[in-house]
Design a protein around this nucleic acid. Structure first.
Length: 872
DNA sequence: TACGTCACG
DNA sequence: ACGTACGTGACGTAC
């Protein structure tokens, strides 16, 4: 057995747990959310790591509460320090019942105790895992000491060993965290650091000169005059910071293994949980310590499990699978769930559950046993997230009900569609404390009601007339998206590296120029520091404020461009820095080492309008508008065996949909005659012949057309055109008077939203807008603009989704090698071979232009070239 | 975690 | 008097 010692930072984890959960109270009014969160975390660690020894360290001073956090806390009444402190005795009581050592020492922080214990136990051969929410502890990492950090909330953990640390901190050793802190400081720990040095500079200096002492001895070697001065002036402060940042590993605590063995006392635990009404905590702990408790009190244990209605399941294998399959064939349907691991295109199945009638089976390794069931087109399958099945290489046939996609269509405004959310959408009650279950139990629990959930969701879809939307659009699209994701897109890494080096040197020059013009070093990336420099030190006029300070966005800066030479440098710096960090660094990190391609995720259940979104990386916002940006786009090239990147994009699809829906006669006519729509609009609203429309008139008309799509308002248009709201209002009035069809349509759609509470697309996709009844002007106005925009944006999304399905089928049917790689809302991007270009173009025209029979034609433009930038 | 900023349609 | 153009995702800073 492994000798594993887990040391928990009680202070920081209580604090995290306190914030992660809503404020809970027992009926006697005692706060219990921190203890609840803490016990969840403890339970998970005990189950996952089964440590031999465990200890919880605490700050004796208990000054573990930063006022800034709870003041900023939103969504409910702010939590107070007293509410946290009152839960500390509960934690002590809880740990005493579990027989877990609780250590605190006068004048020492939890970190110091942890450091000391880690050092001593490691030297006696223990594998140490420190669990904390405080990054400081990373300096304690050694070959035998790892640190587990909580990220968001408390249950999301990340383990750091030496390697992981180096990856995060520019290859530096964990011990160097102290040197980093000594330079950059830490406001939350009251470590001053050297003013003007942030993480970026600290890492650069330490990579160059090793450690703080060596750096302070060799300040000459540092580049940048200002930086040198700063270091020179603040030597003592840096040394003091170093001391403050160092965790003291020589506290007077002895490491006696026996003191840290876990010795739970069932009666005490029961009394504790009864007193504070922590039933789920008791159940969880009983399950974990089932063996210990069995000998003591058999009865308690049976009582315990009757509290939860857990499904019974069997582990399936070659010997018992046939009976299961027989049942499925007789029923003609089954439910299948799985858990996967790995990233596209290397996805493996971790766990699979299969359910027929009330029988639940779990497969742990030989997943191929059910391949014939999956491929049987006579068997209906209920699943969750069909795209992940395709990712795992499974061949699915027969009617597939994906509860994820169905739930999204029913309620597209949900932030997530975990199974518990879907149960709620299907109005199926949860009969257990779901979050407390282990993986295997969760999947068994999820699958037992899947058929019932599915039936409800299907009925709802049918009632709302969205069953076709599921069957004809969203479900087939999942396969298409999976194919695109797995194929990925090739990016020229050598060119990317070259561009990165080039941008780095340009950024360094700009940085120096900016520091020179400002007269000091500061963090250009910090809007706060930048605002201070521009509007206080340099005394430039502050034109706009944000809720936290001065606004420094591009619009503000452009207005100041003649006021000071620093402004244009900052704009250039921002542009280049954005391109480098988001695109060059961001894309490089996501190149798959095996395929050398980038595999984005197309999210099918994110937007409220029905659009797709793309993430990790987002390939729907690759630069195109500036010359510098186009260089990034030019990195995307056809992969091996392909000749060109081809782009097919809809021309003015949203305005065409608006024309169709509103039946405005001017728009219908302009599109039917294939006119330049903005020019035609200008002629109409400015009442001039079409060939007398000036470029300015056209660009104003264009802005108004955009405004119409977004849900027009004088303020928005005024801002966009840099005119007064009054003047903008006149434009709008004029426009709506001339285009009365548009006006009627917009009024009708807002009225419909009021009456029904939702708006729909041409294909029946629905978006609820409850705020439309709000008495708050801002919220109601926003809902009204959404009511106008969603049918247009959403219909465009429906149309391109259908087109993708059709195009993909046609390409497959024609047996072509060319393939679709990306969708960018109104554009499809393909890699093609030269000899197929004509045929592919023909297929795309047919698939995209004839998707929907609108009252105006839908047209596409096709372009191709040696890279994505040239396919324009 | 929240905010500001900026990339795209 | 109020105070916004619609829909996204990623990065960096500061809290």
């Amino acid at each position: 057995m492994e000798r594993r010692f887990i040391i928990i930072d009680g202070s920081s984890l209580m604090y995290r747990a306190f914030f992660a959960l809503p404020l809970l109270t027992s009926s006697e009014g005692i706060y219990t959310n921190a203890i609840m969160g803490f016990s969840n975390m403890l339970g998970k660690i005990l189950t996952d790591y089964k440590p031999e020894l465990i200890a919880v360290a605490f700050d004796k001073s208990r000054k573990t509460f930063r006022t800034d956090m709870y003041e900023a806390y939103k969504g409910q009444r702010a939590k107070t320090p007293d509410e946290l402190k009152s839960q500390i005795p509960l934690l002590q009581e809880f740990l005493a019942a579990l027989g877990i050592a609780f250590i605190e020492k006068d004048n020492y922080e939890a970190d110091d105790i942890i450091g000391t214990l880690a050092k001593k136990s490691a030297s006696e051969g223990y594998e140490v895992l420190i669990v904390t929410g405080d990054k400081d502890a990373l300096q304690l990492i050694e070959p035998q000491v790892k640190v587990m950090l909580t990220r968001r909330g408390i249950m999301d953990m990340q383990i750091f060993d030496e390697e992981a640390f180096k990856e995060k901190y520019a290859g530096l050793e964990p011990k160097k965290l102290i040197d980093i802190k000594a330079l950059m400081g830490d406001s939350s720990d009251n470590i001053p650091g050297v003013p003007g040095i942030g993480e970026k500079t600290a890492l650069k200096l330490l990579t160059q000169l090793g450690d703080l002492e060596n750096l302070l001895d060799n300040i000459d070697e540092v580049s940048g005059k200002k930086l040198k001065e700063k270091l020179e002036e603040n030597k003592d402060l840096a040394r003091l910071s170093y001391k403050l940042a160092t965790i003291f590993c020589d506290v007077d605590v002895n490491f006696v293994p026996d003191e840290y063995k876990i010795a739970p006392d069932i009666l005490k635990l029961q009394a504790f949980c009864d007193k504070y009404e922590l039933k789920t905590v008791l159940n969880r702990m009983k399950k974990i310590f089932a063996d210990e408790f069995k000998s003591d009190s058999e009865e308690e244990l049976t009582l315990d499990f009757s509290a939860n209605e857990m499904p019974q399941y069997q582990i399936l294998n070659i010997d018992n699978i046939d009976e299961f399959k027989n049942d499925i064939k007789v029923q003609g349907k089954c439910s299948i769930l799985m858990q996967t691991e790995g990233k596209v295109p290397d996805v493996n199945i971790k766990l699979m559950a299969i359910c027929v009638s009330d029988k639940i089976g779990i497969l742990k390794d030989d997943f191929a046993l059910v391949n014939d069931i999956l491929a049987d087109e006579n068997i209906i399958k209920n699943v969750y997230d069909v795209k992940s099945f395709y990712h795992a290489g499974l061949n699915l046939a027969g009617k597939i009900n994906d509860v994820l996609l169905m739930a999204y269509l029913l309620e597209p405004a949900k932030r997530s569609y975990e199974m518990n959310v879907i149960r709620q959408i299907a109005e199926v009650e949860e009969t257990t404390d779901y979050e407390q279950l282990k993986d295997e139990e969760k999947i068994a629990y999820d699958i037992q009601h899947l058929d019932e959930i599915c039936k409800t969701l299907q009925e709802k879809l049918k009632d709302m007339q969205m069953d076709k939307l599921y069957q004809d659009i969203e479900f087939p699209l999942a396969k298409m998206l999976s194919d695109m994701e797995m194929v990925g897109i090739y990016i020229n890494e050598a060119k990317l590296d070259e561009m990165n080096a080039q941008m780095n040197s340009e950024l360094n020059l700009l940085e120096q120029d900016i520091y020179g013009l400002a007269g000091e070093m500061f963090n250009i990336n910090s809007p706060k520091q930048l605002g201070e420099i521009l509007f206080v030190k340099l005394g430039l006029p502050a034109l706009k404020k944000t809720k936290t300070g001065y606004s420094t966005n591009a619009e503000v800066l452009e207005n100041l461009i003649y006021a000071h030479p620093i402004i244009s440098k900052i704009l250039d710096y921002r542009l280049l820095n954005k391109l480098k960090t988001t695109y060059l660094d961001g894309l490089k990190a996501l190149i798959n080492p095996t395929t050398k391609r980038i595999h984005t995720t197309f999210n099918q259940t994110v937007t409220e309008t029905g659009r797709l979104s793309s993430s990790e990386p987002n390939l729907q916002n690759i630069p195109v508008r500036t010359a510098e940006g186009k260089k990034i786009r030019s990195l995307f090239e056809p992969g091996e065996g392909y000749d060109q990147i081809l782009s097919a994009d809809y021309s003015q699809i949203e305005l065409r949909i608006m024309a169709h829906m509103s039946e405005d006669k001017h728009f219908l006519e302009a599109f039917r005659n294939n006119q330049d729509i903005h020019q035609a609009t200008a002629a109409q609203v400015f009442n001039v012949p079409i060939d007398e429309v000036t470029p300015q008139m056209r660009s104003r008309a264009k802005a108004v057309n955009f405004g119409i799509i977004y849900g027009i308002s004088p303020f928005g248009l005024a801002k966009n055109l840099h005119i007064s709201p009054k003047e903008a209002g006149e434009y709008i009035d004029n426009y709506l008077r001339e285009c009365s069809g548009v006006k009627q349509f917009m009024e009708k759609i807002v009225q419909q939203a009021h009456e029904k509470g939702y708006v729909t697309t041409l294909f029946g996709r629905r978006r609820y807008l409850p705020a439309i009844k709000s008495r708050n002007f801002t919220q109601r106005s926003l809902a009204e603009r959404m009511a106008m925009n969603t049918p247009i944006q959403g219909t465009a999304a429906d149309i391109i989704k259908i087109a993708m399905n059709r195009a993909s089928d046609a390409i497959k049917k024609a047996g072509l090698k060319s393939r679709i790689l990306l969708q960018v809302h109104d554009e499809l991007v393909l890699e093609v071979v030269d000899k197929e270009i004509e045929q592919v173009s023909e297929i795309l025209r047919e698939a995209m232009q004839n998707t929907a029979k609108l009252k105006v034609p839908l047209t596409i433009d096709i372009n191709y070239g040696k890279n994505w930038a040239e396919a324009k």
